[in-house]
């Protein structure tokens, strides 16, 4: 077995993961705050106003990174859920389940900021076009996963049932992404493209990418923190948790 697989195997064990996550989390959080500060300053202060929308377009520095995260976190949740279903690794179950609230929060932010922008620009808060509707379905999928997880008493069975729902819901991801191409929608098409030129000036693009990085780092930090707490809660009474609690318990 090579070093990387060995390391991954070790990381799957709760005590190792707990220590690793505790060590990495502050760095991720600090990097997220730094990238977020740079991105927001660049987006809200340095970037020029848009030729059509004026300053109102600046909501994209929140809206677009959040929307990307909504999709990205769902993919992470489904991947972890797949591992949990096939290999029955406890850590994968916890990671999948702790992804859901973070993803739901980002999706909610996407819907709210989009709505705030839609009223002055489009002339409506909400419309049932394919992009908006599929994004709302994404939020409901997240809420469904969270709800199912907490509806079942046994933590591990609950995680597997919810992971299955998460995996089925992955069908919605291409629908959200391609809705603006497949159907006539009120929502505009993609501005930033990985392949081919983006339809945005470089002075507006870099703060957007900085914000995308910041949200990714924040997701990492938040997920590690949540997973640590969930691990402690589930593994309570095991030797390694007791060993962690001992020094504090023996203090006067």
């Amino acid at each position: 077995m090579n070093t990387l697989t060995l390391w991954l195997h070790k990381l799957g064990s709760p005590p190792t993961f707990y220590r690793f996550a505790g060590a990495v989390r502050p760095w991720l959080l600090a990097a997220a705050l730094l990238a977020g500060a740079i991105g927001l300053y660049g987006g809200l202060v340095l970037a020029p106003a848009d030729y059509q929308q004026g300053d109102a377009y600046r909501i994209i520095f929140i809206h677009v990174p959040s929307a990307w995260m909504g999709l990205f976190i769902y993919a992470c949740m489904a991947a972890a859920g797949f591992v949990a279903l096939v290999w029955r690794i406890k850590l994968a179950e916890i990671v999948a389940m702790e992804c859901a609230p973070i993803g739901a929060a980002f999706t909610f932010i996407t819907l709210v900021t989009g709505s705030l922008w839609g009223k002055p620009m489009w002339g409506t808060w909400w419309t049932w076009d394919a992009r908006l509707t599929s994004e709302l379905v994404l939020l409901f999928l997240y809420l469904g996963v969270i709800g199912l997880y907490y509806a079942i008493e046994d933590r591990r069975k609950a995680a597997r049932a919810a992971a299955f729902l998460a995996l089925i819901g992955i069908i919605n991801l291409p629908i959200v992404h391609f809705s603006v191409q497949w159907w006539n929608t009120l929502h505009q098409g993609s501005t930033v493209r990985i392949l081919g030129p983006s339809h945005i000036a470089p002075s507006m693009l870099w703060p957007l990418l900085a914000m995308a990085l910041a949200t990714k780092l924040y997701f990492g930090a938040s997920l590690l923190g949540r997973a640590r707490v969930a691990l402690l809660a589930q593994e309570g009474g095991k030797d390694w948790v007791r060993a962690l609690a001992q020094p504090e318990g023996s203090r006067p």
Partner: peptide, 18 residues
């Protein structure tokens, strides 16, 4: 009864647009 404006996917500063 309702008119909505569709935004395109282009974002650029005013000077560049001019």
């Amino acid at each position: 009864t309702e008119v909505l404006a569709k935004h395109d996917e282009n974002y650029m500063p005013k000077e560049l647009a001019e």
